[in-house]
Design a protein around this nucleic acid. Structure first.
Length: 349
DNA sequence: AAATCGGGGTC
DNA sequence: GACCCAGATTT
């Protein structure tokens, strides 16, 4: 039997009923695809539902502030996705007369839409014959064809893309793409897949040559770099200070407490001396123990310094925003900060 | 071609 | 710890 026939039979039987599979609205497919970039369905599902409820169409997303969009995204990570989504929505609403791109080429021009996402939207919504290649697809193809080239290297990517295109069911590319990804996610899983129950047992090169647990080959990334961050929670008359992260760095455009960054740990004395310009009238109430926060490429060692001021310095240091407790709730913050504030039962955030 | 960008799950 | 996830963008 042909691969495509078997794949579709498998998909029909095993497909999960997911919210974005009940629509062909390109806006909703777009949102779902961006949320699911490097993100598991279990993790992204509730974010998708909340996002669509908050911003049901391009116009509502374009009309929102970037902060509102980031707040909806808080905790999901890779925040440039949210900023790009917002910018792209404004572009569509403003320059394209509200018309969403209706082709692969047009979609590619949107910020944050690359190869994968353009192929996904154009195939699912418009029936365009574009094969998607995500982590699932590259794994399935690497095993099926016994590809020993690294699938995240240039040559490997090119090879996988060509094979994915060759395999594509041009009669129904949208279903085919979703079926192949679903097969990778549920059956041809990274660790210890159930090959005896696999519909492609006979034609899978990795299965035949006993390489299933060696494939796909990947070039491995670097180890996380340690980084120490000291957040100063300045409180004065029911207000608190926030700053906005603007550098090309983690958590860009999210809010935080004034921070001291270091590549080695600071001593308690250095921590106490850090808020130099506030010396008069500043009382350090507490320095938290180290909070460890693991990112893909950084290990963050954070401490939170609770300090009380008699009055705000005049003028306020540049970049400082004083916010009343109640309004703090509206500012998007990194998960590390959110979690710490919850852990100390801080009632505002 | 390699580095960067989050957070959470799994073994 | 290492690896992975419906990747894109910058260097």
């Amino acid at each position: 039997m042909k691969f495509v026939i078997k794949l579709h039979a498998w998909y029909k039987k095993n497909r999960r009923d997911l919210p974005w599979r009940q629509t062909r609205d390109p806006y909703k497919i777009w949102i779902s695809e961006v949320i699911l970039q490097q993100t598991r369905i279990d993790q992204g599902l509730n974010y998708y539902l909340r996002f669509i409820e908050t911003f049901p169409d391009v116009a509502s997303l374009a009309a929102a502030s970037e902060e509102q969009v980031l707040k909806c995204w808080q905790g999901l990570g890779y925040y440039s996705r949210a900023r790009n989504l917002h910018a792209a929505a404004r572009h569509v609403a403003g320059h394209s007369g509200g018309r969403f791109p209706d082709s692969y080429e047009g979609l590619l021009k949107l910020k944050g839409v690359g190869n994968y996402t353009a192929a996904a939207i154009s195939s699912i919504c418009y029936g365009e014959a574009r094969a998607v290649v995500d982590g699932n697809v590259s794994r399935v193809i690497a095993r099926l064809y016994g590809i020993e080239e690294a699938v995240n290297g240039t040559a490997g990517k090119k090879l996988v893309a060509a094979l994915a295109d060759e395999l594509l069911d041009r009669a129904d590319p949208g279903t085919h793409n979703q079926a192949l990804m679903e097969f990778g996610a549920l059956h041809c899983v990274p660790h210890a897949p159930d090959c005896t129950g696999c519909p492609f047992e006979e034609e899978c090169e990795a299965r035949i040559t006993g390489q299933v647990d060696q494939l796909p080959v990947k070039i491995q990334g670097r180890k996380p770099v340690d980084r120490w961050m000291y957040f100063y929670i300045y409180v004065c008359n029911g207000e608190i200070v926030l700053t906005r992260r603007n550098e090309q760095d983690i958590w860009k455009s999210l809010y935080q407490f004034p921070v001291v960054d270091a590549t080695t740990p600071l001593t308690d004395l250095q921590i106490m001396k850090a808020p130099g310009q506030l010396a008069t009238g500043t009382t350090i109430r507490k320095i938290s123990p180290e909070v460890r926060h693991q990112l893909t490429h950084r290990t963050i060692h954070a401490r939170f310094i609770h300090a009380e001021l008699e009055r705000w310095p005049d003028p306020l240091p540049s970049g400082w925003i004083t916010v009343s407790g109640q309004r703090l709730n509206g500012y998007p913050v990194p998960q590390l900060i959110h979690r710490y504030m919850e852990s100390i039962n801080f009632s505002y955030l």
